[in-house]
Design a protein around this nucleic acid. Structure first.
Lengths: 334, 334
DNA sequence: TTGTAAGCGTTATCAT
DNA sequence: ATGATAACGCTTACAA
C-alpha cells in the first residue's frame, strides 16, 4: 500500500507539498500539483485516515450505537442517521449495542478508543444515572435518543411516549371501548413504562381499569403469546392496546386463531407506525413515531457539539394517530 | 484525554512498560503492573486505537457494506455479522452502500482509507466485472455476499437463487396451479434475474407459461402496486409467485381489496422467510434464505483471509420451502 | 524486569 | 512555492 513517501519520490517533491495538494491547503504551482496527482494515480495511493486522524486529532467520524438491528424502526433510524452524517461529509460508524447494558458500554468504549468525534446512543438498557455520568465524564460529546437526562437536555432527543400512549388510549375509549387489555414492553425499559403509564392514566381519567396486561419484548412472537395469555384468562375485552406494531401483528394472529374477528370482535391499536402496518389485513391503526426526524435531529446536535457550538434543547417529538382499520368504532367519537 | 505518556509519568515507568502491561506482552513485575493499572484508572486512560493501528498496521476492524438497511433480511445479516465479528475480538464497521453504484464505491473506498483488515460487501448495484477488478486490485481482502465472481469463488458467499425459485414454482405447480403470475425484483439485479429465470424455466419444463409478470423493487408497496397491475390486466391466475415476502404482503393486501380470498381464490408464494410471514393472515408459504449462516460464513472467510490463510470455496447455500397457509392445494401434490 | 529510540503515515510550523 | 522537521500516541526491537 503506497504511502505519501512513495508519492513524494515519484513526483520528486517533499511530503509537505504532497500534503498540500492532498488537502489543497497553501499555494502550490499547478504544474507540480499535476505531477503529484499523476504520481498518486499511478501508485493507486489512498491517504491513510488513521495517520491523518492521529495528526489532526479529528477522525471525521460519528459513532452510532443502536440497541437492536431488527425492526423497521431501527432500519429507519440507521438509514436516516447515515444519510444526515454523509451530507455533513463525515463517516458514520454503526455499532451493535447488543442485548445487555454491559455490551452497550463496550460499544461506547470502543467508539471512544477509536476517537470518534461524537457518539449517538439509542439505548434500551442504560439507566439514567449512568447516562448522566457518561455525559459528564466521557471525553467525546454524547447524544442520546429516547431518554431524558436531567441537566443535559440539549443532548437528548426524545419522543413524548406518555402523551402518545394517552392519545392512543383515548382514541380507543372515544371509540366506545370500555374493556381494554394491554400488551406492553419490557419492564426494565423507561419508554415502555411511560407508554404503560399513559395507558393506565387515561383509563383512570375515565374511571376505567385495564382488563389485563402482559409484558412483551417488542417481538412479534411475544405479541402472539401475550394475546393468547390474555385470552386464556377469560376476562373479555373489546380492545387491545399494544406497545408496538410488531406485537400488534402477533396479537392479531392469535386472535384470528381463536376465531375472533379484528376489528369486529376485538379492536387492536398498534404503536410505531411500522410501514408494514398499512398493508396488513386489517390495516393497523397506530401512532407514528417520527424516527427519521429524531435521527436527523440527533446527528445535527452531535455535529454542533463537535464544532463546539452551544446547542439548545430540541422540542419533544410528538406522535400522531394514524386511523386505519384495526380499531372499530363502537360508537361515534365524541 | 490522557495519553500513554501521562500514564508513564504518573506511574513512574517508561512507555514500553506501560505498553507491556496494556497488551500483557513481555514480563513485568506485578508491583509495577499494579502501579500502571492504578495510574490508568485515575487518569481514565483509554488507549488510542488509531495510534495503535498505525504502529501495528492492523486495525482489528472488519468493514461491512450493505445495500440497504430496510427489511428483516438486512437486519439479520447485520446482527449476525456483528455477532460473529465480536466473537473474534474484532470490530465491525457497518457502512451504508446507498442507492447507487457510486455510493457503494465510496463506501468501500472509505473503508480502505480507514485501513480495515477486510471488507464484506453485500451489493445490489455492482456489476460482476467491477467486483472482479476490485478483488484483484484492492489492497484489502474482499468477500462478497450473493454474487459469484469467477476465479474468486472462495471469496463469494452465495445462495442458490435459481434452485430455490425452481422449487417454489414447482410447489405451486405440484399444488395444481397452472395459471401463475409473478412479481419479480428489479431488472438490474442479478439475483432477481436468477429468481425469475428459475420461475420461467420451471414453467417451461411443465409446458406452461407465465400468466403475467411485474418488476417490483422489493418494497411492500411495489408488491401492492404490482398485484393491482396484474389484476387490471384481466388475465386470470390462481397463483402468484413473488420475489420476496414484503412484496407478497403487499400483493395479498391488493388481492384483499379486490375481494379475492387468499389462498381460496388466489395462492401467494413468498421468498425470504421474513419472520413476520409466520404471523400474517394467511401465514406465508415461502422459502427460507439462510442469511444468518451466510453472514457468518462471510465473516469467517474474511477472518481467514486476514490471517493470510488459504481458504476454500464455501458451498452454495440452499433454500428450504416453508409450507404455510398462503398457498392452496388445488390437488394433492404428486 | 525495564528503558531507549526508531518507526508507523500524516499534518503543520518554520524556514528558505 | 517548496522543503525540513517536529509532533500525534502507540508498538517493538534492542540495550541495559
Amino acid at each position: 500500500m503506497a504511502t505519501i513517501n512513495d508519492v513524494c519520490k515519484l513526483a520528486g517533491v517533499s511530503k509537505a507539498t504532497v500534503s498540500r495538494v492532498l488537502n489543497n491547503t497553501g499555494q502550490v504551482k499547478p504544474a507540480t500539483a499535476e505531477a503529484v496527482y499523476q504520481a498518486m494515480k499511478t501508485l493507486g495511493y489512498k491517504p491513510n485516515s488513521l495517520a491523518r486522524a492521529l495528526a489532526t486529532n479529528k477522525t471525521n467520524t460519528l459513532g452510532l450505537v443502536v440497541s437492536a438491528f431488527e425492526g423497521a424502526y431501527f432500519s429507519s433510524l440507521m438509514r436516516q442517521a447515515s444519510e444526515t452524517t454523509a451530507k455533513s461529509g463525515k463517516q458514520l460508524l454503526i455499532m451493535d449495542g447488543g442485548h445487555s447494558q454491559e455490551s452497550e458500554c463496550q460499544a461506547i468504549n470502543s467508539l471512544v478508543e477509536q476517537r470518534v468525534d461524537a457518539i449517538i446512543l439509542y439505548t434500551r438498557k442504560m439507566p439514567p444515572e449512568q447516562l448522566k455520568q457518561m455525559m459528564q465524564t466521557l471525553s467525546v460529546p454524547l447524544v442520546v435518543i429516547n431518554q431524558m437526562v436531567e441537566g443535559f437536555e440539549p443532548q437528548c432527543i426524545c419522543f413524548d411516549q406518555y402523551k402518545a400512549a394517552c392519545e392512543a388510549t383515548e382514541f380507543l375509549i372515544n371509540s366506545g371501548h370500555r374493556k381494554i387489555a394491554c400488551i406492553t414492553g419490557p419492564e426494565d425499559s423507561v419508554n415502555s413504562r411511560l407508554r404503560l403509564k399513559g395507558f393506565h392514566d387515561t383509563l383512570d381519567k375515565h374511571q376505567l381499569t385495564a382488563t389485563g396486561f402482559y409484558h412483551g419484548n417488542y417481538f412479534t412472537q411475544s405479541g402472539y403469546l401475550g394475546c393468547q395469555a390474555l385470552l386464556d384468562k377469560q376476562k373479555p375485552f373489546t380492545a387491545l392496546f399494544t406497545a408496538n406494531d410488531n406485537m400488534a401483528m402477533g396479537a392479531i394472529r392469535a386472535l384470528h386463531e381463536h376465531g375472533r374477528q379484528v376489528p369486529g370482535d376485538i379492536s387492536v391499536m398498534g404503536f410505531d407506525n411500522d410501514p408494514a402496518g398499512e398493508f396488513l389485513i386489517p390495516s393497523l391503526t397506530t401512532v407514528t413515531l417520527p424516527v427519521e426526524a429524531m435521527a436527523q435531529a440527533a446527528i445535527e446536535q452531535a455535529l454542533l457539539l463537535v464544532k463546539d457550538e452551544k446547542i439548545s434543547p430540541v422540542d419533544l417529538f410528538a406522535g400522531e394517530l394514524i386511523v386505519r382499520e384495526s380499531v372499530d368504532q363502537l360508537q361515534k367519537p365524541s
